[in-house]
Design a protein around this nucleic acid. Structure first.
Lengths: 144, 144
DNA sequence: CTAAGTGTACTAGAAAGCTTAATACACTTA
DNA sequence: TAAGTGTATTAAGCTTTCTAGTACACTTAG
């Protein structure tokens, strides 16, 4: 279900896990109230420690992406609007990187072209609807 | 001479030092054979450990930005062409960041606009000449 | 030569972040 | 009741970064 580059990928494992969940949510693969793999099962599947998965799930909940219920599991939140906050943070980090690249002498054209290249190489084309009334009947209501 | 955001800035101190030297070199503030502050004097001035400065200088030499001579000091290399390698690495890291941002749902337009914003906010305007024969014998060390 | 300053090298420790490990608890569900 | 769930705790190991102290070979000014 998750494609993770354990060790060797970019950054910490728990961060990659968070990114993957957010990515699948943004792509629509994971929808409101969809259940994530359990902490223990995912840890077993990926060959990592349950604490690492728990850390990712904990931060995902803190970031408003998911909600967790002891005894039941972790689920995608109904109001995907929270992804806006993720976008905001990511964009802020991105600007830091741009600023550093600028200081090191990279030109605006070089960076813009790099952005074009990455987006031309095909990867995650679809998008998310802005005003959606489709909430389906998956609402269980034990949110909060 | 160097403006460093000790602790609190983006990343490790030695990395900030490297970036600063590369930045000043790209801006032309530091030219071929200009001498950098000594490991000990810069460490004292910044209130950090000499080893941290030495680490930065060591990597700058390894990256082809400077050359060091025991007993004399560290100097900017004459062939600034080496900055091309820095640009290459920086651009590669930048693409990684773009790729991650893309996965998290950021659009090409959002990233391009962010690049525009950073470059519009004024910071490092001038550029470096490509084919220069001017090596001059500028400032031989009245610095520090 | 001497003394001061230079880059360089080495060992050691502290601190922070990430991961693993082993339990334990309260909860939900079949 | 039993199994599975999220959550919490404590401990250890690992890596990176920074600090600290010491030492060595070199260059330069006297």
């Amino acid at each position: 279900m998750f494609q993770i580059n354990l060790r060797g990928g970019r950054g910490a494992i728990y961060q990659q896990l968070k990114d993957e969940v957010i990515r699948l949510t943004g792509m629509g693969v994971l929808g409101p109230d969809d259940q994530l793999p359990s902490v223990r099962s995912l840890a077993r599947e990926l060959g990592i420690n349950p604490n690492t998965v728990a850390k990712a799930y904990s931060q995902l909940e803190q970031d408003g992406i998911t909600y967790s219920v002891a005894g039941r599991g972790s689920f995608i939140r109904g109001d995907i609007v929270q992804l806006r906050e993720v976008h905001r943070k990511t964009l802020a980090e991105f600007k830091e990187t741009v600023s550093r690249a600028k200081s090191l002498g990279l030109t605006q054209e070089e960076l813009t072209e790099a952005v074009d290249e990455v987006f031309s190489s095909a990867g995650a084309p679809p998008a998310l609807e802005e005003g959606n009334g489709e909430k389906s009947d998956r609402e269980k209501g034990e949110d909060n």
